[in-house]
């Protein structure tokens, strides 16, 4: 039974509420009946050893698992009181409002401008595109470095810059929640640090759920941490408690490095 405690919602409605979410890949039960509430404007980290299901769970939140033929999702993911997996919910719109940044930076083979503009264009978001692009690049702390070369190929940027470009691209469609799947694991320490600072700033406007295999990173940047193991949620609580005085033996064993 998962131990969940001290999740402070304040007086705001939660950003996401997962209830009994399970994911099956064919016969394999990859994610097992997870209940998890994500508070608004906070950073929630999902940690656990490889294969524990944290990325799979993350992808439930924006229906990316729909794209995998063999995946089956049961349970409920509540977003503004509506089940994201309900009958008449359009996954395309879900993904606009719940964005995702991936592990390896994956900019499109287009210019920097076109990368950021892609989201608004395909979603029919009108208005001043130039301003939207600039705003998104500023929010991703990349504007100063690229403002004079927006028409250059995105591939001309360094790894850290590309990842910030991907973040800008995601922000351009004005999501409420940003999901991040190990966003800094392919980057060098300085680039990682910039991404972490960025996450801290983004928290004010967005809700962030981040999967990371780097415990120290989770400890540095998250407000709440959920520990998953073999598809189950073992413990979910405030980050400082998870890392100084966890309640479950398995959590203790993982964060002290005795396995994982």
């Amino acid at each position: 039974m998962p131990t969940t405690y001290d999740i402070q919602l304040g007086d705001r409605e939660p950003a996401l509420v997962a209830q009994g979410v399970s994911v099956y890949y064919g016969e394999k039960h990859a994610v097992k009946h997870i209940d998890l509430t994500v508070p608004r404007n906070q950073v929630v980290a999902l940690i656990g050893p490889s294969g524990c299901g944290k990325s799979t769970l993350l992808r439930c939140f924006n229906r990316m698992n729909d794209l995998i033929g063999t995946a089956r999702v049961t349970g409920r993911v509540d977003f503004h009181g509506q089940d994201l997996y309900g009958d008449r919910v359009d996954p395309v719109e879900v993904r606009r409002r719940i964005g995702m940044v991936f592990q390896k930076p994956n900019p499109f083979p287009k210019s920097i401008y076109d990368n950021v503009a892609f989201g608004p264009r395909v979603n029919g978001i009108g208005g001043d595109l130039d301003r939207l692009v600039e705003e998104s690049l500023r929010r991703a702390a990349l504007w100063d470095e690229v403002s004079d070369r927006l028409n250059d190929s995105a591939y001309a940027l360094s790894g850290g810059q590309q990842q910030r470009l991907c973040i800008a691209r995601t922000l351009a469609v004005r999501p409420e929640i940003v999901l991040m799947d190990e966003p800094a694991s392919a980057l060098d320490p300085i680039a990682t640090q910039r991404i972490e600072e960025l996450i801290y700033e983004l928290k004010q406007e967005y809700t962030i759920v981040i999967v990371t295999h780097n415990m120290q990173q989770a400890a540095r940047i998250s407000d709440y941490t959920a520990f998953l193991y073999m598809g189950e949620l073992i413990e979910y609580g405030p980050t400082e408690t998870i890392f100084t005085n966890p309640r479950e033996d398995r959590t203790e064993a993982y964060v002290t490095g005795r396995f994982g």
Partner: peptide
């Protein structure tokens, strides 16, 4: 065409046709 490109496009709320026509086919 790398699946990461498709993923990124879907992740931004593109429909399948948009992903195919604006990313996959050009590449």
């Amino acid at each position: 065409v790398p699946s990461t490109i498709r993923e990124a496009a879907y992740g931004l709320g593109a429909t399948r046709w948009q992903v195919v026509s604006s990313q996959v086919v050009p590449m």
